[in-house]
């Protein structure tokens, strides 16, 4: 049997809200070490990679590897039936054809149970090579979300340039052009408010804002986001999930022809 109880159930709610517009169906790979998911969007431009380690659950039981194919829209609808402070348990019986979701109120006086039919998903797994990135930018996730939203006023793509001074987002379209420049923070009250640029070499890449906007829906998961860039390789956008794992998005760059 597979059973994973997540005391902070709202993490799962935020996760599914963050990926459900990008990916319709996904295989949750359940292993003794934890739960993972990898899926591309339908146009094969971006990829979602989720990891939730077993030690983030309490308890976590996985006797053998299981693949749970789940429609994320359905899962999102079901998760809307839980409260933010509910404890959420995912269970799958051996040889069962469904995943069971249990929502438990903090005082345990309300228990709801939903049985979701599993779906067969032909999921291509990609090998993501280890990459030494030219620049790694860390910033508040709310700031990332705001910049992406602001740039969308101007056009459908954004050029992100990292240098020792900081990071510059710029867009131009029919109505005009604009940019937002963030300097590296010198002194901040909280590390979560800081902007840092870890630079090996200056790099400038162009990306579709539509996808960055979808990625930024993960902002409620984590106060900070990390953007990793290298010339002519996909952007990595990473949100940490408490102490238990991460939600990563990869986005292929736009390249001059």
């Amino acid at each position: 049997m597979f059973e994973a109880r997540l005391p902070q159930g709202q993490i799962l709610k935020k996760l599914i809200e963050a990926v459900r517009e990008l990916v319709t169906d996904a295989n949750f790979e359940c292993k003794p070490s934890g739960l993972s998911l990898q899926a591309m969007d339908s146009s094969h431009v971006s990829l979602v990679s989720l990891l939730m380690r077993a030690d983030g659950f309490d308890p976590y039981q996985c006797d053998r590897n299981r693949t749970l194919g789940i429609n994320l829209r359905t899962l999102a609808s079901v998760l809307k039936c839980s409260s933010n402070d509910d404890i959420i348990t995912i269970r799958a019986e051996d040889d069962g054809d469904s995943a069971i979701l249990i929502f438990e109120s903090p005082s345990s006086d309300r228990l709801s149970e939903f049985d979701l039919k599993l779906v067969d998903i032909d999921n291509e797994q990609l090998v993501i090579p280890d990459t030494q990135y030219d620049a790694v930018v860390r910033m508040p996730s709310a700031e990332f979300q705001r910049i992406v939203r602001d740039m969308q006023i101007l056009g459908d793509s954004v050029t992100i340039a990292c240098s020792k001074d900081g990071v510059k987002f710029s867009a131009n379209g029919e109505i005009g052009s604009g940019s937002v420049r963030l300097k590296q923070s010198s002194a901040v009250d909280s590390e979560d408010d800081a902007v840092t640029v870890d630079l090996q070499q200056a790099v400038s890449l162009t990306f579709a804002l539509r996808y960055l906007s979808l990625f930024s829906k993960a902002a409620p998961l984590s106060p900070t986001v990390t953007l990793s860039f290298s010339k002519d390789v996909p952007l990595l956008v990473e949100f940490r999930i408490a102490d238990m794992g991460h939600l990563r998005f990869y986005l292929a760059p736009k390249i001059d022809e």
Partner: peptide, 14 residues
Amino acid sequence: RAAQKSLLAFFSRQ
């Protein structure tokens, strides 16, 4: 003009 690349141009299938 910049063209959108597919992710499959960078990552290989398992």
